[in-house]
Computed example of a mutant assay.
Amino acid sequence: MAIDNTPMLVPHLVVDDAAAALDFYARAFDAVEMVRLPGPGGKLMHAAFQINGAMLFLNDDFPEFNDGKSSTPTALGGSAVTIHLHGPDVEGRFQRALDAGATVVNPLEDQFWGDRYGVVRDPFGHQWSLAETVKEVDMDKVLAEMGNPA
């Protein structure tokens, strides 16, 4: 096998119960699992999966390798990052996430920038925004209306 050093940027999610998270992401976002590496005590040391053709990494929380601190969104009181999924049928994708166990942070609504957009929180504390462009807008006019001339 050839070594592949293709430059990439990959979000790396930390959760409690990574195996359950992989199952949730498959149900909610049609994730395709690529790799699952088990670790001690049944925890997952590493997993890789794709959503919308983009790769994400995932692992169980291992405070013992992080200065004794948990790094899950639940332990941290939330996540400072929102993962954005853009594409067609946002209504169906949003409902699919809810049916899989996500909760609504912001309901789907048409936004001034031309997208139908909403945010959900997965059962592991990570936030996901979902959007579909529903109309073209002139960004210079939007910025001017907001008091921010281009």
Rank of each mutant, 00 (worst) to 15 (best):
S71P: 15
V119Q: 04
H126L: 04
M45D: 13
H86W: 02
V137I: 11
E33A: 11
A26F: 09
L22A: 05
S71W: 14
A18L: 10
D122P: 03
F29S: 00
H86D: 03
K141E: 15
G114T: 02
A26C: 12
R36F: 04
T74W: 14
Q50D: 06
Y25M: 07
K135T: 04
Q127V: 02
H86Y: 03
M146L: 14
F94G: 02
D60E: 08
R27M: 12
H86T: 00
D122S: 04
K141W: 08
L22Q: 10
V90I: 04
L108S: 02
E109C: 01
V81T: 10
A21R: 07
M55Y: 08
T133F: 10
M139W: 11
L9M: 12
P63E: 12
N148P: 03
F112H: 07
P38M: 05
L13F: 14
Y117D: 04
V10R: 09
F62K: 12
D17E: 08
V119D: 03
V105E: 00
R96M: 09
P38I: 00
R36Q: 03
G41S: 06
H84P: 03
L85H: 00
P73A: 01
R116L: 09
R121T: 10
P40D: 13
P107N: 06
K141S: 11
F24R: 01
R96A: 10
E109M: 03
I83P: 01
L76S: 06
D115C: 06
F65G: 13
S129P: 01
P40R: 10
E64M: 08
A131I: 02
H46W: 09
L76Q: 08
M45A: 10
G92S: 11
G101M: 07
P7K: 08
Q95N: 07
R36I: 03
L9K: 04
M34V: 14
D99A: 14
G92K: 06
G53L: 14
E33P: 10
R121K: 12
E132A: 01
